[in-house]
Design a protein around this nucleic acid. Structure first.
Lengths: 111, 111
DNA sequence: CTATGATGCCTACCGATTCTAGGTATCACC
DNA sequence: GGTGATACCTAGAATCGGTAGGCATCATAG
């Protein structure tokens, strides 16, 4: 019974969160939904992964958080990319591209 | 001082090893060299990552090992893909492709 | 002839990160 | 009143790659 949802590889979650936030301020729960939606339901981030990741990312100064009220009037913690976070997103995207390229080379290679 | 060699993401090493072995039987040290060469020096697998990984992979039945002598007459442990390993390689490549696709979708997405 | 670097194997431990599995609370809806 | 969605959180397990060591052989440079 293989899951159709792919598990994330370690190291990809930060990039996804930063990317989601690059499209606009958002609260935690919304980040999960945005990633799922953007990936056409292929990626599902667990809450138990997200919240610790957000904490780490905030500690690193890549996002800032504030409590506010969402459009339905509920309390939620909104996260916003900082300048440093935007730079970090670029860095991580570049690393990802390098890795994808390198692995593609290995896969197309012959002895 | 960023390294120009990319660190691997967790979960990619098995696939790289299996791919390297899909090109022919090889000993551990040679696997490292083959991956480095195939990736145009972009990927460098550490010995401390490789040997435990080979052990894991052998336990799962994806490779078989035997001691032999290399072309220069030195003892070395040669690994060979099993049928199950070849199937596993396909599976992992498919997962990798799905992940790359999913992340590409997220990255090109707009709200 | 000795030192160094490459080849070849291995292990122990660390650090980072994701997941599972819980917990809490509010709200809409049936 | 119960269920599912929304919204936050934590503890602990599991995985896995890296660092840093160890050991042995061999070719080559000094």
């Amino acid at each position: 019974m293989p899951k159709d949802k792919a598990d994330l590889l370690q190291g990809t979650l930060d990039m996804l969160i930063l990317k989601a936030l690059s499209l606009g301020e958002l609260h935690g729960y919304g980040i999960i939904q945005r990633i799922r939606q953007l990936s056409d339901e292929m990626l599902n981030v667990e809450q138990g992964s997200l919240y610790p990741a957000l904490y780490r990312i905030e500690q690193k100064g890549w996002v800032s958080a504030r409590w506010d009220v969402n459009e339905t009037g509920r309390e939620a913690k909104f996260y916003k990319l900082t300048r440093s976070g935007r730079k970090q997103l670029e860095t991580q995207e570049a690393s990802w591209d390098r890795l994808v390229l390198a692995i593609a080379k290995v896969r197309q290679g012959t002895v």
